[in-house]
């Protein structure tokens, strides 16, 4: 198993958000759905060590990462594309990509291959290599964030609302790229745009009020009456 989340509880101050969340990701692409405020970002930030877990365990490739700091979790092989992108706005595309790989122990040859892969996925990043990231559009910045995450050749790629704030045409494009990527890396992706993301995932979870309420295959979710009425909007 790539990632195992066991009975995870987390929150902010007096507010408990996650309630005994169980979630697994194998060598596959997994979706995490749910309304705004359900706790998807909190779950991802807890996995990444940004929010502290109150109880439960998080296991990456057999090793508990529950007590590690964010930078140690990154070095252990999880790459995150945060909801707010969290790029380095005053630095070029080149520097942002370089930093994606600089602190994760990977060989030079791997980094070179990953850079070619990123350019293959997002040719615009090659054209804009020297441009300051802060001067790019939201969609382009999203591509930089995905590219930066891929540079370290992660074993698990987590994307938090990758389509947020993107034009519909670009959303389709991003999920097309994710469908290609899932052959190379395990993926956990949260989305409000369930319809588009179902094309790029194998399995999915639905979270409501901080708890997992449903888990099924992509086709199972697509035909589930609750999912259809609440998320596919018919």
């Amino acid at each position: 198993m790539m990632l195992e989340v066991k009975k995870l509880e987390a929150g902010y101050g007096k507010l408990q958000v996650l309630r005994a969340v169980d979630l697994n990701v194998g060598r596959e692409s997994v979706g995490l759905f749910g309304p705004n405020g359900a706790g998807k970002t909190t779950l991802i930030n807890t996995i990444m060590g940004i929010v502290e877990a109150r109880s439960g365990d998080i296991v990456l490739e057999g090793k508990s990462i529950n007590k590690l700091k964010t930078h140690e979790i990154a070095r252990a092989g999880i790459a995150l594309v945060p909801q707010e992108r969290e790029l380095f706005p005053g630095m070029s595309v080149a520097d942002n990509l370089e930093l994606g790989a600089a602190f994760v122990p990977r060989g030079k040859a791997v980094i070179k291959k990953q850079l070619e892969m990123v350019f293959g996925l997002f040719p615009i990043l090659k054209e804009r290599y020297a441009q300051l990231v802060g001067t790019m559009s939201g969609g382009q910045q999203r591509m930089v964030a995905i590219g930066r995450a891929l540079m370290a050749k992660p074993s698990l790629l987590i994307l938090d609302e990758p389509s947020l704030g993107l034009q519909p045409s670009i959303v389709a494009e991003v999920f097309e790229r994710l469908a290609i990527l899932k052959k190379e890396v395990a993926i956990l992706v949260t989305e409000q745009n369930v319809r588009e993301s179902l094309k790029a995932i194998d399995r999915g979870y639905v979270m409501e009020n901080g708890a997992v309420v449903l888990e099924d295959s992509a086709t199972g979710l697509a035909t589930n009456p609750h999912v259809i009425s609440a998320y596919l909007g018919i």
Binding site: T70, L99, F103, A152
Partner: peptide, 20 residues
């Protein structure tokens, strides 16, 4: 560059493995 990245966005820096 890592130091500059920490100055511009400490959370982003931690996410790429920099010890802030």
């Amino acid at each position: 560059k890592a130091a500059l990245a920490v100055g511009q966005n400490p959370r982003g820096a931690a996410i790429v493995g920099i010890d802030v």
